[in-house]
């Protein structure tokens, strides 16, 4: 069995436990609810997966989400146009991504440092311009992106499925996608074999930035408000989703499907604890235990697979 299948089995096991312990769990409403909650983390985690596949890291995704959401909010308020607002949010996300890519490829800064510096700059700009204020109250048509349905599916879930399909096709079946894996496995070998490493890395960080921008817009539409610090709590869960999904922090192996499983596991843990109304005092401890169990089972399964091979 592939390690991906093992992870899927882990999710199913978690679902069985929750179904047995709460009658509210296995309902269409709640399953859509879990997917909708996972979508925000998955959107930023999907861009981050590409970065980590290339053996890089993007710590600016949370800050980027915050600034993109606030900018989109301000632009919608100022112009009254949803389209211009969305354009501004996506543009902001991409611009931050391009800057990350340039810092890493042109100045040759380590990705951790470059994107950590970017995180602070982006927060700085956002805190300074927002000055503790909240921008809120958007047109109903815009809010549909966050809370509307299409063909019975919540729109954020459709966006998640769409990015999963497009991203998976891109990484698996296109030359550029294969080149990203090759760079992650060994950048020097990739360069010698003629892959334009710098351009591909800039692309990867731009895509990560754009996904943060998109997530910012979904956040804004879902919460109907934006303030400076909103992305801060999403960074670590996004990184954790990518890694729980089996993408190696050293680059070269992993997949977007894995990131989806990671995001769903993180969401299921919280959903389950709420449904079972476990006291807040215990929630962090239980979250930690389940994450370690998930990682432990994954490692054991991989060892077992290797011994069989």
């Amino acid at each position: 069995m592939s390690s991906f299948a093992w992870r899927l089995l882990g999710v199913l096991l978690l679902c069985v436990v929750l179904t047995l312990s709460s009658s509210a769990f296995l309902t269409v409403g709640n399953l859509l609810n879990v997917l909708r909650q996972a979508s925000l983390i998955f959107l930023i985690a999907s861009g981050l997966t590409l970065v980590i596949l290339s053996a890089g890291l993007d710590l600016s995704i949370g800050a980027n989400l915050g600034l993109s959401a606030c900018l989109a909010a301000a632009v919608i308020k100022a112009t009254g146009s949803i389209a211009i607002g969305i354009g501004a949010g996506l543009g902001c996300g991409m611009t931050i991504g391009i800057l990350n890519g340039l810092l890493i490829t042109m100045l040759r800064l380590p990705p951790f440092i470059a994107t950590y510096g970017m995180l602070w700059m982006v927060y700085g700009i956002n805190y300074w311009t927002m000055a503790g204020n909240t921008i809120y109250g958007f047109p109903a048509a815009f809010r549909e992106i966050g809370s509307g349905y299409l063909l019975g599916m919540p729109i954020p879930v459709l966006l998640m499925v769409l990015s999963l399909i497009v991203g998976s096709v891109f990484t698996r079946y296109t030359t550029w996608g294969h080149e990203i894996y090759a760079i992650g496995a060994n950048a020097e070998v990739a360069r010698l074999s003629g892959i334009p490493v710098r351009r591909r890395l800039i692309l990867v960080y731009t895509l990560s930035g754009a996904m943060s921008g998109l997530a910012g817009i979904v956040y804004l539409a879902r919460l109907n408000s934006a303030e400076a610090g909103i992305g801060e709590p999403l960074l670590l869960p996004a990184i954790a989703s990518v890694l729980i999904g089996g993408t190696s922090l050293f680059g070269g192996t992993g997949s977007l499907g894995g990131a989806l499983i990671g995001a769903v596991i993180l969401t299921l843990v919280l959903n389950g604890m709420n449904l079972l109304t476990i006291s807040g005092n215990w929630q962090p401890l239980i979250t930690g235990v389940i994450l370690l169990l998930a990682a432990g089972i994954d490692t054991a399964a991989r060892k077992w697979n290797e011994s069989q091979a």
Partner: peptide, 24 residues
Amino acid sequence: LLASQPANFQRVQALGVTENLLQS
């Protein structure tokens, strides 16, 4: 009192927790 659950003073977490509780 049906439930007393943490959402860490944050809007997005309160949204999620309330959605979950509305399910049960």
